[in-house]
Design a protein around this nucleic acid. Structure first.
Lengths: 206, 206
DNA sequence: ATTATCTATAGATCTATAGATAATGC
DNA sequence: ATTATCTATAGATCTATAGATAATGC
């Protein structure tokens, strides 16, 4: 099974079968989690029978892995692009990163690690852990490191800052449940302001 | 294929059956989530047969609700106590709150709202949402409000600050997975420092 | 001949109920 | 008589496989 070679003429008007499945599965897995979504649910959304999914993917687990890698990969390119286009100031870079995440459906990292991944085989757990690390964590970590090298913020473990940033992003859908008088953008902007004020370089005034 | 040899001579040292069930169920639900835990799993841990659980609780869902309310209630008293004992400075209050959460197994709020609660009936969802609000959110929110009234920090929606604080607490088990050279305490201390520096009252600077 | 679907079903679970049985308290 | 357990099982699912069938490409 290779990539479908592109000699397909008008076969895929918008979506080949495989891509439709990936898209619908991603939406369902994201909103309800791996265990709560059945192959029947996915098939229903795609408009085929449950057994037909097994022509494209050998198992529910492999489908989930494919879906999740696709999603992380999309975040890697989108996030990197957003940061690169945002100039060379940490503040604008963080706003760009925040804007990127707000433009996408939430990843639900914590749920994924806590609920979904334990249902997978060990190899796939490791694989997805590495993938998330490289696609989402690493670009942000690098951004903080460079800001520290430029002296824009004081020295604090960049892993902590990345966790800090992402945990706020991830909790936005949750925070907004209470009072929807606030939008995600506002919460992220507040967070970035607090973060940057709190990380001002330790000048020896005072 | 009979009794799993119960070599305990005195049946129950400290716990009635119902409390044993609540405790084991809490541990399992917390570590694996509502859907991934079966009544059989809980029964196995308690040392009884699966059907016997239904003598104490009418359904898996009711058991989960009882377990979760118990847990939130424990957080309410523990958290309030920690804050009350911490003097009247925001910094020490936040350290106390952080220490409380670190002393407890993680709540996994986001997983609970995203994966567990959608499997419950609407009434129970609302019930648990209110319970978490009152037991965990409200004490923290009140703490931030009072600090603002004392002028210790600048004015920022206390709901955002609470979400901020909790989201970092919640992501600690996750952040630590990468590099366990850092302890939870260190991450929380860093977070509090950044938060307090970032929230310094708006003196006219620059 | 290949690709993509379908029907039918095996084999595992899981929740919950029914009714029997043992232990305890009066 | 009450309390707490047990065995057995009904009734729903769910994943995955086997084999038939239709559509497409050469």
């Amino acid at each position: 099974m290779k990539l479908p070679d592109n000699s397909l003429s008008q076969k895929q008007v918008s979506h080949s079968g495989r891509l439709r499945i990936l898209d619908e599965a991603e939406r369902l897995f994201r909103t309800r989690g791996y265990n709560a979504v059945t192959m029947r649910d996915i098939a229903r959304e795609v408009g085929i029978r449950q057994a037909s999914l097994y022509y494209h993917f050998p198992s529910k687990e492999q489908l989930f892995v494919a879906v999740t890698e696709q999603m992380f990969e999309r975040h890697r390119t989108g996030l990197q692009q957003a940061i690169d286009d945002a100039g060379d100031e940490l503040r604008s870079q963080l706003h760009a990163a925040g804007g990127w995440f707000l433009s996408q459906p939430p990843i639900h990292f914590l749920s994924m690690f806590h609920n979904d991944m334990p249902s997978l085989g060990e190899d796939n757990i490791k694989r997805l852990a590495i993938c998330s690390q490289q696609c989402v964590f690493e670009p942000l970590r690098q951004t903080f490191i460079e800001a520290q090298q430029r002296g824009e913020i004081r020295h604090t473990p960049p892993e902590s800052l990345t966790g800090f940033f992402l945990s706020v992003i991830e909790s936005i859908p949750f925070v907004l449940t209470g009072s929807d008088a606030v939008s995600g953008k506002v919460v992220v902007d507040e967070m970035i302001s607090v973060l940057l004020d709190g990380l001002k370089p330790q000048v020896e005034r005072d």
